[in-house]
Amino acid sequence: MRRNDILLRFALLIILAILIFLVNPNFGKPANLINILRQGALLYILAIGMTIVILTGGIDLSNGAVLALSSCVAAIAMERGLPIMVGIIISLAIGMICGFVNGVLVTQVKIPPFITTFAMMYFARGLAYIFSHGRIIYGFEKSFRFIGTGNIFGIPMPVIFSLLLLFIFYIVLEYTSFGVNIYAVGSNSESSRLVGINVKKVRIIAYLLSGFLSAFAGLIYTARLNAAEPVVGASFPLDAIAAVIIGGTSIVGGEGNLFGSAIGVLICTVIINGMNLMGISSLWQQFVIGSIILIIITTQTYTKSAKINIPILRSRKIESFEK
C-alpha cells in the first residue's frame, strides 16, 4: 500500500464530503459527523478482521453470522442472570472458536476460504436460531449498554473502541513479527514457508482474530440496540469486503492497511448518510457504492502505472486466494 493510494482515497472521501455538504449543509453539523463515525464504527471493527484475513490471502464470509451467534448466546447468558463480564467472555470465546474452526478447515483440511467461511455462515446462523429459538432477546442492564450508547467527552463508545482497535492492530501489523508474517504469507505463501514462517499458524490466527472482532462488534451492536437477534448481519460480509476493497487492500493478499480500510468504511458510511439526508431513494445506494469500487480501483491502477513499471504488478496478480 503506497502512500499515494491512501491519499487518493482520502481525497475522494473529502471530495464526496464537500459535494454532499454543498448540496445539503446539514451534513456538516457536528452531530451528523459524529453519527457517521458511530455508524461506521461497527462496520469498521468487522473491516479490521476482514482486512487481516484478506491480507493473508483469504476471505471471511461468516462474520455477520458469527456476530449473530455470539451476541445471541451472550444475550441469553445475561438474560439467565449471569454477570455481564461472563456474558462478554462467552461471546468473545464463541467468536474465537468459530474463527478457529474456519482457520483449521482452511489450513489443515485445505478447503478454500471462500467455501469454508460460506459454510460457517450457514452453520453459525443456524446455531444462532437454535439457541435463541428465533426470538429477539431484549432489555439489557445500563452498565452493559454503556459500551454501545455511552459517550466519553462527547465521543461515542463505539468510536473509541474502533480507534483503540485501529491503534492496537496497527501496531501489531506494522511493528510485530506476526504482522510482518501476515503480509509475507499474503504475498507469497510458498516462499514464506521456505523462510521458516509457520504459514498455517499465521492463517489460523488471522481467522481467529476475525472471529474475535465479529463477536466484539456483536457486543457493541447488542448494547447499542438493546436487542440481540439471530437474523442480524446478513449483509455485513459484503459490506465489509466492499469497504476493505475501496480502502485499497488487494483482494489477493499481501497489500493494504488498516488506515485504508478506515477510509473505505468512511466512504461507504458517508455515501449512505448523504443519500439519506438528500432523500435519494435508497434503491440507488448499492449502485453508487458499486460505481465507487470500480472507479477507485481503476484510477488506482492508472496512477500506479504512471509511475511504476507494470510487469512487477502483473507478477503479483497471478496469485489468487487459494494458496
Partner: peptide, 21 residues
C-alpha cells in the same frame, strides 16, 4: 487488469441496484 473479484463485486452491486430501481 483488475482483479475479477473486485470488478464483479462492483457489477454485482450495481446490477442489484439497477434491478430494484
Amino acid at each position: 487488469k483488475l482483479p475479477p473479484f473486485i470488478v464483479t463485486l462492483g457489477t454485482m452491486v450495481i446490477t442489484a441496484s439497477l434491478a430494484l430501481v
